[in-house]
Design a binder for these strands. Structure first.
Length: 155
DNA sequence: GCCAACGTTGGC
DNA sequence: GCCAACGTTGGC
């Protein structure tokens, strides 16, 4: 019997992509906490608004770069709230009925080395990760506990 | 509701 | 820079 199964406090895990040219793990390390703004995809929005909980683990992934892969770990510290960037500049968003949401994450640690996308693809235990499914462009995606552990075991 | 055109993502 | 794979938009 699982000790935590009835308590509603099971941790969930996520993978969040960022282009290092736009926002890198080094930047997160300097900032310590950042709001994950600018996501304009409904699936990712729904996860940030409805599913991500304080304390959840986040794999920080560098995309669109020379060596794409997981580079660090962060923690969700603020659950879904309206993305303030939609109210800046373009005045056509309704603050009472926000379309886009974001979460805050806090830097936990950098990995000793990048766990590259190539390695993840070559690890049979990780074949089920959404990340390695063909054509998946979601910037926020769920990670199972088994995949979280198998991936970090590669470090 | 269908579907072509277009824009974006992201690996390579 | 190329291109595959999406998501979104808009005409019909």
């Amino acid at each position: 019997m699982k000790a935590t199964s009835c308590l509603g406090n099971d941790m969930a895990y996520w993978l969040m992509k960022s282009e290092p040219d736009a926002y890198s793990i080094e930047q997160l390390k300097r900032d310590k906490i950042t709001c994950w703004d600018g996501v304009r995809n409904y699936q990712a929005r729904n996860m940030m608004r409805d599913d991500m909980r304080k304390g959840d683990g986040v794999l920080f992934y560098h995309s669109n770069c020379a060596e794409p892969g997981v580079v660090g770990i962060a923690t969700v510290v603020r659950e879904g709230y309206p993305d303030h960037t939609i109210y800046k500049g373009k005045g056509n968003a309704d603050p009472d009925n926000p379309t886009w949401f974001m979460v805050d994450i806090r830097f936990k640690r950098k990995l000793k080395r990048t766990i590259t996308l190539a390695e993840i693809k070559n690890e049979p235990a990780l074949a089920g990760m959404p990340l390695v499914k063909r054509g998946n462009r979601l910037s926020v995606m769920p990670v199972s506990e088994a995949d979280w552990e198998a991936l970090l075991a590669l470090e």
